Amino acid sequence: MQSQNGARALTRNFDRGARALALLAAVSMVASCGLPRSGPNKREIYASSVIKGGDAFIVDVTPQIARIASQQTTFGFSKAFQSAGLIGPDTISPGDRLAVTVYENVKDDPLLGATGQRASPLPEMLVDGQGYIFIPYAGRIKAAGQTPEGLRQAITRKLEDQTPDPQVAVIRLAGEGSSVSIAGSVAASGVYPIEPNTRTLGGMLARAGGVSIDPATALVRVTRNGVTGKIWLNDLWQNPNLDIALRPGDKIVIEEDKRKFTSLGATGQSIVPFKSSNLSAVEAIATVGGLQTNSADPTGVFVFRNESAKVANAVLGRNDLTGEQRMVYVLNLTEPSGIFEARDFLIRDGDTLYVTEAPYVQWTKTLAALTGATGTASNIANTADSLNGN
């Protein structure tokens, strides 16, 4: 009797072992079939390292690496823009229109008017492209760069030898001479005259109604004589030195930041525009909804980037690299300083932010696939038994 019980126990243990082996074999088979996943795992990414025969440098982010790799393109105005002083509110420019009236101290035979007419209003005149106007009996006179008072004195000197004690009045009319154009993402694009309260960039933008996009992503581009300077709008408000004096003919364009990064893996899957001039890795993760709690591996946050040779050499402590280099920066958010380093590491245009799945996720998928397969097989067997009348 005891021998029979021992045989039965041995048989049960054998069956359990066989089932365990079968389960392990099934898990291995299902896993090898390539279950769906969001991308490569940490082991596969590290296998692409240059030191393992791959084509990418894989670098753990430290405070020093964050400082070197987070260099952003800086914008600003050249000294030529910043050194230009404010133009006078009445400075005459090519394209301006002027009203000139000459008063003569004679009745019988005035130089410019009819007999008995002391005041002689001249036809409205346009300051030509070279900055000159034409006054009868005075000839071509340089008007551009002068104020109406300065031009009045110049005309008077030209006429005083030909008519006794001439009195001249000069009025600068509304025109397109001292004006700038504003286009792009502004409330009211158009051509605006440079007036006392619009002689600087900030004043002119206010005159145009401000920008029509998020100021955090607005860029201001100013082109003058073929030279262009560009700044962030927020920098304009924060730094008075960037509120440059305008010049006639300046072209101002407001454009939205076009930079983007790609988010993949165990986080939001999307192409994401920048929401500010500087975007840290932490902010980028938050922008796409954060790490997926049920699947993300906080030790496997990667930033893929094509880095310039200069930066790559500095990051790797080398000086022999040439051309763009493929770099993979690794952030471990579980380390004590990991959040700080992710906060200091800046995302750049074209970066790919990738978060790997936690190791248990593939096991969960494998078990789910096995459970589903077992249930399907059981249903098929039950159906077959029913058809056979069992």
Score class of each variant (00 low, 15 high):
G129Q: 12
I65N: 03
R326F: 11
I51Q: 12
G190R: 09
A281C: 10
S295Y: 07
G85S: 13
R259Q: 08
V186N: 01
G88W: 14
D257F: 10
A377R: 08
V220I: 15
I135M: 09
F302M: 03
Q72P: 04
G300F: 14
I182A: 01
V100H: 09
P240D: 02
T62W: 09
V355F: 08
E357M: 06
A80E: 12
Q2C: 03
E307V: 11
V328T: 04
K258C: 02
A206V: 11
A174S: 15
G338T: 03
V315K: 07
G323I: 00
L122H: 02
L367S: 05
A342D: 00
S93C: 04
S3M: 08
I380C: 00
P240Y: 10
P123H: 07
W363P: 00
D349N: 14
A26E: 02
D90I: 00
M125Q: 09
K310G: 06
T293A: 13
A208T: 03
A284T: 01
N278Q: 12
T374C: 05
N5H: 11
G17L: 15
K251A: 11
G88R: 13
T334S: 03
S49I: 02
L122V: 02
P240I: 07
A47N: 08
Y360H: 07
Q117H: 11
P110G: 03
K142S: 10
T101E: 01
L346T: 01
L387E: 02
Q292T: 07
P336H: 05
L264I: 05
V311M: 15
S212Q: 01
T371Y: 14
I182M: 12
F57N: 07
E149Y: 13
W237N: 03
V61M: 06
P215F: 04
I135Q: 07
V222M: 08
L367C: 01
Q4F: 14
D235F: 12
P148D: 01
V191R: 14
V288L: 08
T74P: 04
V106L: 09
A9T: 06
K158Q: 13
L21N: 07
F345I: 01
L242E: 00
V59I: 14
A138N: 03
I68S: 02
L23D: 04
I347F: 15
P359V: 04
A373P: 06
G202L: 10
S28N: 10
D108I: 09
N313Q: 05
I271Y: 10
P336L: 11
A188D: 05
L236F: 15
E256H: 03
Q82V: 09
A373T: 05
V361Y: 12
A208N: 05
W232N: 06
A369G: 03
W232Q: 02
Y354D: 01
T228A: 15
V127N: 01
